[in-house]
């Protein structure tokens, strides 16, 4: 399913967070949103998925829902947002419980999502028993169990250490390769963006505007290969050039100023 953002602006009181943002996400692609901190990346993601009402502008979709889709706009959260009193299985099943599926079908769907994320043997564990990486895998399993049309990832790996991040990136790539879910991926980590995205949308500092949209030419499945390392590094440094000055200014800005 395509997602079209048209002239979206957003204000928090006097503070202008987004200014006339327009962009389109094509079915099946992964779009990374990067920009200096406080540029409104997360705000834009909230608006795109219908969790925030934009002050101006509109967000539209086009194209058919994927088969068996229960929750078209689905999020994966930075802090995982797991219910600590539910087991892994229970957390994943939460997303299905209000859809009137039979118990059998629900269990089947949960089991296959858990298997896909390598969580099968942790089904009855509580979140506190899991590492950060495993917890985020639960968040991913919960998202894919509803077969989303659009997947919104809000800095999903930034609460994790570097090694875990590597492992999860591989998992995400494997899942996307299978499910072909349209995804919008907010990150402040350029390496993640270059590794995972088909296109990278660079936002300016506050109020956030689309500064440039950069395509990544190297096919995703080949990006880990050594031969592409140089091209990807160059892309990463080009992105850094785009946001560096503004990042420095943003860094010196007072909170809520």
């Amino acid at each position: 399913m395509d997602l079209i953002v048209r002239e979206v602006s957003h204000r928090y009181g006097e503070l202008r967070a987004l200014e006339a943002v327009s962009l389109a996400v094509r079915a099946g692609e992964t779009l990374a949103l990067i920009g200096p901190s406080g540029c409104g990346k997360s705000t834009l993601l909230g608006i795109m998925g219908g969790l925030l009402q934009p002050s101006e502008g509109e967000v539209l979709t086009s194209g058919p829902l994927p088969e068996g889709c229960l929750n078209p706009f689905t999020y994966i959260f930075q802090d995982f947002a797991l219910l600590p009193w539910r087991t892994v299985e229970g957390n994943v099943s939460l997303a299905l419980e209000h859809h009137g599926l039979g118990a059998g079908e629900r269990a089947e769907r949960v089991a296959s999502a858990l298997a896909l994320c390598g969580l099968a043997e942790f089904a009855h564990a509580f979140p506190k028993q899991l590492s950060g990486g495993m917890r985020q895998r639960v968040g991913i399993a919960r998202a894919i169990v509803v077969r989303p049309a659009l997947l919104f990832l809000d800095e999903p790996l930034s609460a994790l250490d570097a090694q875990t991040r590597e492992l999860l990136m591989e998992d995400l790539l494997a899942i996307w390769a299978r499910e072909r879910t349209t995804s919008i991926y907010v990150t402040h980590n350029l390496q993640e963006a270059v590794r995972l995205a088909d296109r990278i949308c660079v936002l300016s500092r506050r109020p956030g505007r689309v500064k440039e949209i950069v395509g990544v030419e190297v096919p995703r499945e080949e990006r880990a290969n050594a031969e592409h390392a140089r091209a990807l590094a160059e892309l990463q440094s080009r992105l850094w050039d785009l946001i560096r000055d503004e990042a420095a200014v943003a860094d010196r800005e007072m909170q809520n100023a």
Binding site: L51, N71, Y75, F77, A81, L83, W85, A95, E97, R142
Partner: peptide, 25 residues
């Protein structure tokens, strides 16, 4: 609050959010 946001993002009806998220939390 992020748990409530999560519930909304999965389209849980308000009563379900109270019963399955607010009260156990």
């Amino acid at each position: 609050r992020n748990l409530i946001r999560m519930g909304q993002s999965f389209g849980l009806p308000a009563a379900m959010i109270v019963w399955k998220i607010l009260l156990p939390g």
